[in-house]
Design a protein around this nucleic acid. Structure first.
Lengths: 251, 251
DNA sequence: CGAGTTGTTGAGTTGCGTCAACCGTTGTGG
DNA sequence: CCACAACGGTTGACGCAACTCAACAACTCG
């Protein structure tokens, strides 16, 4: 399908093209830009709230969290997985409005703003695809708001797991309802607006009901149907299968 | 400053240009597209979750909420005010992932997707400005997630009021820390992930502390400093003063 | 093998939800 | 013009979900 390529950005371009094919020139222009790959240590701050950025960050593998400071502590407000463009907004904003933090065994790709901006200038189709991608991001944030505001603990946990399983599958990181989640319970609890203790107990409840199993950092969904039922999970907010409405257009 | 114009989109173009000036051709092309203005009745559904849309909606005056269905009831996940483009995402998504509902005395502007898409094709600067606008939206959703997940009731209410006051001021809907908020307490409570009763009591507490006054649908912030302190309000997530980083560029 | 981190579990407390009654306002129709 | 219904706001009582405190077990790593 796709020509062999050495660009680390392949993973992201593939993701975009699963939605809408890009014109070949746009695709090759994207993959031709210099991209630096690096393995981040756990808890490494890739971008810091309040600072200016001059790179866009893409996740190549692993997990990365979005965090905001409030009252002196960092709160997780989102999770990025392989194939996610986690700070396209930095292209247009002067300062980061939140931080990006890597977790264990995460590799990231950095591309200078100048290169991305140039691409947007020359390839309208790419700019559209990037815009589309950020709109899906926004949709996920909306669902998180809903999840935290209106579901109770057990359902909240179930929803997070279902979301991650679905996103990871779409990205072909995993094929089963089973994945590695290298975040501590304390971090996951914070991301869901729960205390550590209560998160732990809710997770224990899901385990006892035979809906979820965990071994170390591996999470396995044993009964997807039951989980979906419990949390009223509707994956359409992830916009995984939605192609661009207006057919792909020339540059 | 701006030439006299009859386009109802003036209000939105002005907002965009407060961030970055548009090339004159782009501006006039935008304002030249057919836009239909209508006064919505209270609770009118402007766009329905799950349905396809073929118009983009802008708020001309009043309030509009974003809502999602879950377990049979509608939950508010966002509030749009005058000058907001509330469903640019429908341009690229096949189906609405949430509904848009008008509140009393709200006037909306509808523009067909075809016209907006055409504009994006011909004016790169406009597409950028629209993209930028949706990124700010996403930033607001992130802050809502944070607010609901990590602040307790009184602070949550304070945060919402401060956000609205700040956005309304930026849009020159109001000049004081005082504004009309035509949502019921039940609706506001839902938007904050609180029960009606607890919202009411939290609001009463803010009133007793002399931080907020309400008369009918009018909300007045009596002590902005104290409110900001209580809720650790940092308006930077609203990106009100941030111009586009890369200087305005030609089409 | 010890030290630090992460996970588990129990006990007591509290913020918030639910139930329910009541009040004021608005609006409608006899 | 009043009666009545419908709606939004207010308040009290009570129960529960979730938080905090605290101790301990399991795991990881130098």
């Amino acid at each position: 399908m796709t020509a062999a390529s050495n660009s680390p950005l392949q993973i992201y371009v593939d993701k975009l093209e699963r939605r809408t094919p890009l014109p070949p020139e746009a695709r090759s222009a994207f993959m031709a830009i210099p991209a630096s790959v690096s393995v981040a240590e756990s808890q490494a701050v890739i971008a810091r709230e309040g600072q200016e950025a001059n790179h866009c960050v893409f996740v190549s593998s692993g997990f990365l969290t979005r965090q905001k400071h409030v009252n002196g502590s960092r709160k997780i407000i989102g999770i990025g997985i392989a194939g996610d463009a986690v700070d396209l907004q930095s292209l247009w904003f002067g300062k980061q409005d939140h931080s990006l933090v890597a977790h264990r065994r995460t590799t990231i790709i950095a591309v200078t703003h100048a290169h991305v901006a140039k691409l947007c200038e020359t390839h309208r189709s790419l700019m559209k695809a990037l815009w589309h991608d950020t709109l899906i991001d926004a949709s996920i944030f909306r669902e998180w708001t809903l999840n935290i505001a209106h579901r109770r603990a057990r359902a909240r946990v179930a929803h997070l797991f279902l979301e991650l399983a679905t996103r990871l599958k779409a990205q072909a990181v995993t094929s089963e309802d089973r994945f590695e989640l290298p975040l501590t319970q304390s971090e996951l609890a914070g991301a869901l607006g729960l205390s550590l203790v209560h998160f732990n107990k809710s997770l224990a409840a899901l385990r006892e009901q035979g809906q979820v199993a965990t071994q170390g950092r591996i999470v396995e969904l044993l009964n997807r149907r039951a989980l979906e039922e419990e949390t009223a999970f509707d994956p359409s907010y992830l916009h995984i299968e939605t192609p661009l409405k207006s057919a792909s257009c020339a540059d």
